[in-house]
Amino acid sequence: HHHHHGSGALAALHAEGPLAGLPVTRSDARVLIFNEWEERKKSDPWLRLDMSDKAIFRRYPHLR
């Protein structure tokens, strides 16, 4: 159930192989992290948004 927010940013994801479903670039990863943060913020208003490279690598090590 993907609803768009204002920016309408869509992340490019790997379609197949071992990385299927994972973001292709760091900016794609940022979109995913932001979208998930927006969702989680509803139940956790104090949740901090962390889109640093460090956060991205921790989450998606293949982007190193």
Score class of each variant (00 low, 15 high):
13 L>E: 04
36 E>L: 07
32 L>T: 04
47 L>F: 15
59 R>S: 06
29 A>L: 00
40 R>G: 13
38 E>I: 15
51 M>H: 03
30 R>P: 00
6 G>M: 15
14 H>E: 03
48 R>Q: 12
13 L>P: 02
40 R>H: 10
13 L>R: 05
29 A>T: 00
58 R>H: 12
3 H>C: 13
62 H>S: 02
18 P>Q: 06
54 K>Q: 11
19 L>E: 03
45 P>A: 07
30 R>L: 08
10 L>C: 10
56 I>C: 02
60 Y>K: 00
22 L>M: 08
53 D>W: 09
1 H>F: 09
49 L>F: 05
1 H>T: 12
32 L>E: 03
25 T>F: 04
25 T>C: 08
49 L>A: 03
19 L>D: 04
62 H>M: 01
13 L>G: 02
54 K>N: 13
6 G>Y: 10
51 M>C: 09
16 E>N: 10
36 E>M: 06
53 D>V: 09
63 L>H: 00
62 H>Q: 01
49 L>Q: 02
27 S>C: 13
7 S>Q: 12
34 F>S: 04
36 E>A: 06
63 L>G: 00
22 L>D: 01
32 L>A: 04
33 I>K: 01
31 V>H: 11
22 L>N: 03
48 R>M: 09
59 R>W: 04
63 L>S: 00
54 K>V: 08
9 A>S: 15
34 F>M: 07
27 S>G: 13
59 R>Q: 07
51 M>L: 14
12 A>Q: 14
2 H>D: 11
37 W>P: 00
8 G>N: 12
34 F>D: 01
26 R>S: 08
36 E>H: 05
34 F>H: 06
28 D>A: 05
44 D>W: 09
6 G>N: 13
27 S>V: 09
29 A>K: 00
58 R>I: 10
18 P>D: 07
55 A>D: 03
14 H>N: 04
60 Y>P: 00
12 A>F: 12
1 H>W: 05
40 R>Y: 08
28 D>C: 06
34 F>I: 07
25 T>K: 05
18 P>C: 05
32 L>D: 01
12 A>C: 13
51 M>N: 05
25 T>L: 04
19 L>Y: 14
50 D>L: 04
43 S>Q: 14
60 Y>I: 00
58 R>T: 13
17 G>D: 03
56 I>K: 00
34 F>Y: 14
45 P>L: 06
3 H>F: 14
41 K>F: 07
13 L>N: 03
30 R>V: 06
33 I>R: 01
22 L>S: 03
53 D>H: 06
24 V>N: 02
27 S>N: 14
37 W>I: 02
10 L>I: 15
2 H>S: 09
13 L>A: 04
54 K>M: 11
20 A>T: 09
38 E>Y: 15
22 L>Y: 05
2 H>T: 11
56 I>F: 01
27 S>A: 14
43 S>T: 15
32 L>P: 00
36 E>P: 00
49 L>K: 02
20 A>R: 12
21 G>I: 02
41 K>R: 14
7 S>W: 12
48 R>T: 11
6 G>W: 15
7 S>N: 14
12 A>H: 14
26 R>F: 13
1 H>S: 11
23 P>N: 00
33 I>P: 00
25 T>Q: 05
33 I>W: 01
5 H>G: 10
63 L>M: 02
14 H>Q: 03
61 P>Y: 02
23 P>V: 01
54 K>G: 09
42 K>P: 06
53 D>S: 07
5 H>I: 15
48 R>F: 07
33 I>E: 01
11 A>W: 03
50 D>F: 03
52 S>M: 01
50 D>P: 02
6 G>S: 13
10 L>D: 13
27 S>T: 10
47 L>T: 13
8 G>S: 11
60 Y>F: 14
57 F>T: 07
45 P>M: 07
12 A>R: 13
